[in-house]
Design a protein around this nucleic acid. Structure first.
Lengths: 84, 84
DNA sequence: GTCTTCTGTCGGCATAATCCGACATTGTAG
DNA sequence: CTACAATGTCGGATTATGCCGACAGAAGAC
């Protein structure tokens, strides 16, 4: 992947309201970090194919359940850079 | 639970870094909304016993996987009131 | 004290999620 | 064009999960 990005991407924050939006955010931060799916998958200890599906917004029951709870409570989930 | 809370609780935001912290946040917002587990479970379409375990911070693989990915990316997850 | 409501927790079962490997597709560089 | 890297996607086997029902404990009202 030759896309050389020397700029610390400071996009976001990302609002998470669905599996798809979570996937979008993860992909954004992964590419901003200059990582491939294979690299991140290994770092996080999971299968690359699973990460691919996660970024694609694959709908899973557990995630949808949690998001339903939060929606009913009027709570919003946000992802942003920790920026240590 | 007769704790009548007419006040719109404005605590938070909550940082989510583990299943336990997610549970804490959910419990906080649920009680702030004056809801019982049974009520919220019905609203969200899930079992009350599951919601109880969720609030107790039961560790599930999927949630831990997602949190691992975010940690590796240096991304933080935050919950706060939508405050429509 | 009793009655009631809310919550924690357990086991068994149906099914949903993940791993693993493989192959197809896409994009980029040369 | 070829070659390579990254990603999408698909079965099948294994594992994890949530539902369901039930019971027990805690806390409050009376």
């Amino acid at each position: 992947m030759p896309t050389e990005d020397t700029h610390k991407g400071s996009k976001g924050p990302f609002r998470v309201y669905s599996p798809a939006s979570l996937g979008d955010a993860i992909r954004h931060y992964r590419t901003a970090a200059g990582l491939t799916q294979a690299q991140l998958a290994e770092m996080a200890g999971l299968q690359r194919s699973y990460l691919s599906e996660l970024e694609s917004g694959k709908e899973t029951e557990q995630l949808k359940r949690i998001l339903r709870v939060l929606r009913q409570l009027g709570v919003r989930m946000t992802l942003d850079e920790a920026d240590w």
